[in-house]
Design a protein around this nucleic acid. Structure first.
Length: 371
RNA sequence: GUGCCCAUAGUUCAAUGGCGGAACGCCUGACUGUGGAUCAGGAGGUUGUGGGUUCAACCCCCACUGGGCACC
């Protein structure tokens, strides 16, 4: 068994990488897409279904689990793996993003963030030390540093924000005590290349077993995202995994892998599924559309997922219109399978030195909505 | 059989003589380190039918059709 947290870069095809990251719950083949299970569940999907559709890494969330049911309770139940019955590699976000995107109100200072719960309005405070303590109680294999994800467009704020994030990163490292969890540092800097470079140099100067790129896919354009990824890529060490947080769409995964990203997570496939939108190789389709009422085809003909090998579009549309919860489950299974397999195919293409044509062909057929 | 009431968008209802609206539903779209939340846009009307009064009728009058209630 490889040393814990070792990253074996198995093969590269230009910037695209195929690797393997050793966690306490198994060897993680990269690139990899992680379904998001915010509240210790990937919404509408059971762990058995996650395994069947090919998921290998699941993300869960510090902010939510701290508020409900409480990190101590999860620890009492034997930790997050045992609690939610996911025995594979798991990752927890630090709560940095959620404090900024969900909390009713918040006050940031040099030491941490005071915020109000979106559930009951109660007041709480996260510091780097507190976030790490919670993540240690939860017990995921990869834990994230407590960072500030600010408005990517506000330069003067981003300047102050990355300074805070950098100090907090050091404090997270110092606060960490468990040897079986890999703490990843997070590069911030909004849409500003010079700030991204500054952040990347600082964060990679600290000894993390992996690095994340945060603060993207929060409203910037695709072009801006690609620019940042292109310039951050050479600043990150080749022998450690890179995690692009919160991304993404099928085209974002391909474009991220092309720029050296190893790990992705995103709520998109499951959220879209709950709103009846399904991925296909041609682009997204809305399964609620009246045109599918009599459609005897599966969502996608060549798809090997449980949903596509079993059910028609007409049936799925019926479930959606009737507001049956099975609709969410079946489309979630399809969307997750689609992304997990897209990334697995990308990995295979990298191994065989044909990633660029693979990526070009996929992007040529996939109808992208957002530019 | 007699009397009274009612009939407006797919549905439930507004509009009382002066440009026919709302809610829900329906049809589209959005959603990126998750609020199964939500948001945005669109279509939809010979105002039950036929007459009449009026410059002008969903609105007033008459008949008819259909529905409801009460009494025989």
């Amino acid at each position: 068994m490889p040393e814990l947290f070792s990253f074996n870069l198995i093969h590269s095809d230009e910037h695209a990488r195929a690797g393997a990251f050793q966690t306490a719950h198994g060897l993680l083949q990269t690139p990899v897409f992680a379904p998001v299970g915010t509240q210790a569940t990937v919404k509408a999907v059971t762990p058995a279904q996650l395994i069947e559709l090919g998921a290998t890494l699941v993300l869960s969330n510090t902010y939510h689990l701290y508020l409900r049911p409480g990190a101590e309770l999860v620890a009492e139940m034997g930790g997050l793996h045992q609690f939610m019955q996911w025995q594979g590699p798991m990752l927890t976000d630090s709560g940095g993003f959620q404090v900024f995107s969900l909390a009713a109100s918040r006050k940031v200072d040099a030491e941490g963030v005071t915020f109000k719960s979106h559930i009951d309005g109660s007041q709480h405070r996260f510091t780097p030390e507190k976030a790490i303590a919670i993540e240690e109680l939860l017990g995921a294999d990869i834990i994230m540093a407590f960072d500030e994800c600010s408005d990517p467009d506000d330069r003067s704020y981003v300047e102050k924000s990355i300074e805070r994030t950098h100090v907090w990163a050091e404090r997270c490292l110092k606060a960490k005590t468990r040897p079986d969890q890999a703490l990843f540092g997070i590069v911030q800097g909004g849409i500003y290349p010079d700030l991204r470079e500054k952040s990347a140099r600082f964060i990679t100067g600290l000894d993390f077993p992996g690095y994340a790129i945060g603060g993207l896919s929060v409203g910037e354009t695709k072009t801006q995202m690609h620019e940042i990824l292109d310039m951050v890529d050479p600043l990150l060490p080749v022998n450690k995994p890179r995690y692009l947080m919160g991304v993404g769409s099928p085209e974002d995964l391909i474009n991220g892998i092309r720029r050296g990203v190893d790990i992705f997570d995103c709520v998109l496939p499951t959220r879209l599924a709950r709103h009846a939108s399904a991925f296909t190789s041609q682009g997204r389709i809305n399964m609620m559309n009246a045109g599918f009422a009599h459609d005897t085809e599966p969502i996608e003909k060549m798809c090997g997922c449980y949903t596509c090998t079993t059910f028609t579009r007409a049936y799925l549309r019926h479930l959606i219109v009737a507001k049956e919860m099975l609709a969410s489950t079946l489309i979630s299974i399809h969307n997750l399978y689609f992304l997990v397999h897209l990334v697995q195919q990308a990995r295979q293409a990298i191994m065989e030195d044909r990633f660029q044509p693979f990526a070009d062909e996929f992007l040529a057929h996939y109808n992208t909505k957002r530019k």
